[in-house]
């Protein structure tokens, strides 16, 4: 079952590779709308990579979003065969899509009882039961949407960091600001997040 499903999506991507090439070309040339059209492909690729990584038998592996996003980038640029200039922009998109994917999964796993949910996202929290973690992801998503209303940049930084696993340098490039600004904005964002999540 599983094998045939992933085979299908691979096939789909192959079929669309010419289309991707087309879109990337346009984006490379400065067409911002192309970004929107690229999304479904990146989305599929990310999901495919996630599945691949999950099932790959690797000793003591941990699933890293960085690996996912990078892998998806490599795959897509391989298929499009073009010289990719907007790598960091791609990462930004990928982070946003990762957020969507995870929120979607979380929604299906969440027991949907909201309320006084303490979340910290620190390392020990992996011990939390799946349902609670799913709940945490959903709450974070909500809070992040609110943060975007206050500071779009801060919200992006949290998104890229948490969902895309991007480095400070990659985030700086994607947002076209200094690394120092990224660090500063992250520092401010997490204060706000912490408060909102623990309200």
């Amino acid at each position: 079952m599983r094998r045939s499903k992933s085979a299908r999506s691979t096939k789909m991507i192959e079929q669309s590779s010419s289309e991707i090439t087309q879109i990337l070309q346009e984006w490379n040339e400065g067409d911002e709308d192309a970004k929107e059209r690229l999304m479904p492909f990146v989305y599929d690729e990310l999901k495919r990579q996630a599945r691949l990584l999950m099932s790959r038998e690797r000793k003591g592996h941990t699933l890293q979003p960085t690996a996912l996003v990078h892998e998806a980038f490599i795959q897509i640029s391989k298929q499009s065969g073009i010289d990719w200039k907007n790598r960091s922009h791609f990462y930004g998109i990928a982070s946003h899509l990762m957020r969507q994917i995870l929120v979607q999964h979380a929604r299906s796993r969440s027991t949907a009882k909201r309320g006084n949910n303490q979340i910290h996202f620190s390392i020990d929290e992996v011990q939390l039961p799946v349902e609670q973690r799913a709940e945490s992801i959903l709450i974070l998503d909500e809070v992040l949407t609110r943060l975007a209303g206050i500071s779009e940049e801060q919200s992006k930084i949290v998104e890229m960091r948490f969902f895309g696993g991007l480095s400070n340098e990659e985030m700086a490039e994607a947002l076209d600001i200094s690394v120092r600004s990224v660090i500063r904005k992250w520092g401010a964002a997490r204060l706000w997040l912490y408060r909102e999540l623990n309200k």
């Binding site: 599983r2 996630a50 599945r51 999950m54 099932s55 941990t62 699933l63 890293q64 979003p65 996912l68 990762m98 957020r99 995870l102 999964h105 979380a106 796993r109 910290h120 996202f121 620190s122 390392i123 929290e125 992996v126 799946v130 973690r133 799913a134 945490s136 992801i137 974070l140 960091r161 948490f162 969902f163 696993g165 401010a188 997490r190 204060l191 706000w192 997040l193 912490y194 408060r195």
Partner: peptide
């Protein structure tokens, strides 16, 4: 000033990334 009071706790939180955090429900 209120937000600044969370500095220590906030720095200790958010050490995970989302994929690590949700890896087992990502699994098919």
């Amino acid at each position: 000033e209120q937000l600044l009071t969370f500095e220590e706790e906030a720095a200790a939180s958010f050490n995970l990334n989302a994929v690590e955090f949700s890896h087992d429900f990502l699994e098919p």
